[in-house]
């Protein structure tokens, strides 16, 4: 009797936490269809905020920038991260023993530190005009670690004997890589790509410091909108962005179930 009562309390607490996680987002989605300028009471159903969104030049431009940056940055991060993951797993020797530290430190640091140090570096050393290029470099820098972790986990889970077998059968190193390793880690590489894509399209803090004045991304645009006023248009763009990231994450977790765990 006491036992069931206690677990009832626990379930109630757990439900409350789930509600805490979901209610705020549900409210954002709900009010994106609300026919009122104020996010306060329900007036009636409308899709006009979405229509407004697709007429908003600044918003569309920011979305285009975000997509372009995310595509290029995640492609580069996937290439470099995969190489780093392979190197970390295969050669934990000599100077390369320090590689995991170099790869993982950008992931563990508070984002603001990466943002301001890159700002300093771009302006002071490279004398680069802040814009697409600086955002691109910054996004690659913080994504490499995530890809490397996913690829490394996948490699560590592979049966070593398969490589020995390939060697014993006379496969050259490149052939072993091309026909054995690459197909086996392909899901991890794809998941890494999708992960860096979502990280890039979602990033606000680091982008905020390295974007300069000329170029806006979607999160920067959302930030400047909510700093000024709360409008249902923000709800609409939030809802769309949520749908996009959700589908990307669903895709990533289908390709490599470890991917989600690597992010957390």
């Amino acid at each position: 009797m006491r036992r069931t009562k206690r677990s009832l309390w626990l379930w109630a607490a757990a439900l409350a936490v789930y509600a805490f996680l979901y209610v705020p987002l549900a409210v954002v989605v709900l009010f994106s269809f609300n026919d009122s300028l104020l996010n306060a009471e329900w007036i009636g159903f409308t899709t006009r905020w979405y229509a407004l969104l697709f007429d908003d030049e600044a918003m569309l431009g920011a979305a285009a920038n975000s997509l372009l940056i995310a595509l290029i940055a995640s492609a580069l991060a996937t290439l470099l991260g995969t190489l780093a993951g392979i190197a970390m797993q295969r050669w934990p020797v000599g100077v390369l023993r320090c590689l995991p530290l170099l790869v993982l430190a950008p992931v563990a640091m508070p984002e603001i530190l990466l943002g301001v140090s890159l700002l300093l570096f771009f302006r002071q050393v490279l004398d680069l005009t802040l814009g697409l290029i600086s955002i691109l470099i910054a996004h690659v820098t913080f994504s490499i670690g995530f890809v490397a972790i996913i690829v490394r986990v996948r490699l560590a889970g592979l049966d070593e004997s398969i490589f020995d077998a390939a060697r014993d059968l006379g496969a050259r190193p490149w052939q072993t890589f091309r026909h054995i390793t690459l197909p086996l880690i392909r899901p991890a590489i794809l998941a890494g790509f999708l992960m860096s894509f979502t990280l890039s399209i979602d990033d606000f803090v680091i982008t905020f410091f390295v974007a300069g004045v000329g170029v806006t991304t979607l999160p920067l645009q959302i930030y400047s909108m909510i700093k000024v006023a709360v409008t249902p248009e923000v709800n609409a763009v939030s809802t769309l962005l949520m749908a996009l990231t959700l589908s990307l994450i669903a895709l990533a977790s289908k390709l490599a179930p470890d991917a989600l765990k690597a992010r957390a």
Binding site: Y18, L21, Y22, V23, P24, L25, V27, V28, F31, N39, A40, T198, D202, F204, P219, I222, Y223, I226, V230, V234, S238, L241, M242, T245, L246, I249, L260, R263, A264
Partner: peptide, 25 residues
């Protein structure tokens, strides 16, 4: 566990924005 992770799929700013709406009144 997935249900815990899912809200993560939304942008960080959106999660803050949600509280502007909720706490405002």
């Amino acid at each position: 566990v997935l249900l815990v992770l899912l809200p993560f799929a939304s942008n960080f700013l959106i999660r803050i924005y949600a509280w502007i709406i909720l706490l405002g009144p």
